[in-house]
Design a protein around this nucleic acid. Sequence first.
DNA 1: GTCTATATTTAGATAGAC
DNA 2: GTCTATCTAAATATAGAC
Lengths: 241, 241
Amino acid sequence: MTTKKVSRRTVAQRPTRESKLPRAHRRGVRRGDTTRHAILEAAERCFAERGFDGVSLRAITQAAGVDLALVNYHFGSKDNLLRAVIVRRARVVHEDRVRALEGARHEAGTKSPSVEAIVAAFLEPLLRRLIAGDRGWRRYGRLVSQLDVLPQFAGLTGEVLDPTALHFINALRLALPKTPAQSIYWGYMFLIGSMVQAISATGRIERLSRDLCRSNDIEGALRELVPFISAGMRASASRSG
Amino acid sequence: MTTKKVSRRTVAQRPTRESKLPRAHRRGVRRGDTTRHAILEAAERCFAERGFDGVSLRAITQAAGVDLALVNYHFGSKDNLLRAVIVRRARVVHEDRVRALEGARHEAGTKSPSVEAIVAAFLEPLLRRLIAGDRGWRRYGRLVSQLDVLPQFAGLTGEVLDPTALHFINALRLALPKTPAQSIYWGYMFLIGSMVQAISATGRIERLSRDLCRSNDIEGALRELVPFISAGMRASASRSG
DNA sequence: GTCTATATTTAGATAGAC
DNA sequence: GTCTATCTAAATATAGAC
């Protein structure tokens, strides 16, 4: 029954017993906020790498350098933790996308923006952050990819991601008035699926291309993605006309 | 310590204590083969619905109506069980796809088959089975979709799915000789991602389209998919020329 | 090949001291 | 807010009778 204090690693960020009253007191950051943040970061990384059910709260809190019990104190449950991880960045992306679409509308004047402009307004806000942002954004990209494949996360997807989807589907319908609605919906799904492949970073494209293409090269993927998807969308239009 | 025999449901297929020497003795089916089969079917269903790490062997054997210990007897481990589930159908699809591509080559004569023909040769063997086959094929579709998103399954994907991928990538390169190789690799990834959205049946398209489109309508998805992807592939070609 | 029984580990969650 | 300690349930896997 020895509990074996086994290897408390030195991850930084950890307010140790001896140095209470730690780093953050400027800017009104309260005590628990750094803990919350550390848990969110670690959860994002773990969920992205091994999937929601593939990681234990123990693994997450260990990676965060905080006590196991603090997950339930701050988030209530593992489900709520996932939700918090997703919502944190999804809100930012949603607002960027809506702004980008408004920008495209402004540039197009009285006409509808082009399919290219709409697709770019959807893809760029997320992918540019994956390119330029901290590593957390890439982890978020891999994590959010999983939501779109497992029916288990339908509730979270529906609540957090569907509003953005409907916003852009609507824009696409206006841009392609002759295209049947069904084709637009399926086209949006293909857009999502293609984007997921560009950001899920499974290492597959490296294997297939013998390192000619890299999962890390989101910039390159984005250059391929916009014309590919736009042409696909237009093809649906021409078939029906 | 009451073990609570709790609700052994009546799933059929279960050789109960009282009726030994069960159904299958025609066609040389040996005793354990029905058990193996029942486990494979149940595992396929459970993995598809809740993900590999989201299901326990207990849940699987319970759904199969067999004893827990028989999984390890027949498959050795949970990992091997997943592998067996995937390989069983992947082999069939691979052979169908190669045959379909050979058919397209034969029809095209001395030229390369069209992009449409290649894309169709890739998609139809799987999707036609999802349309016409038993429910197991749809579950397989949902399950195999997960392999493409989680890095955790890279080994299985690389071994089981990559050979088919390389076969079709090669055909696409011959069909689009002016397109840079990078565009072909990314295009193949987008093909996979789009197909995954068509077969992963998360219920999202029903929500977004308010039931105008249905995940079950693989036939409709296939009609959209081939021209969408083909046009995307061609767009990459024209950009570089 | 199948089943009972169990070994061993690990999971999510919480009570209560500090 | 944090930590120790622990509850309860569930996990994978196996040993050995039949």
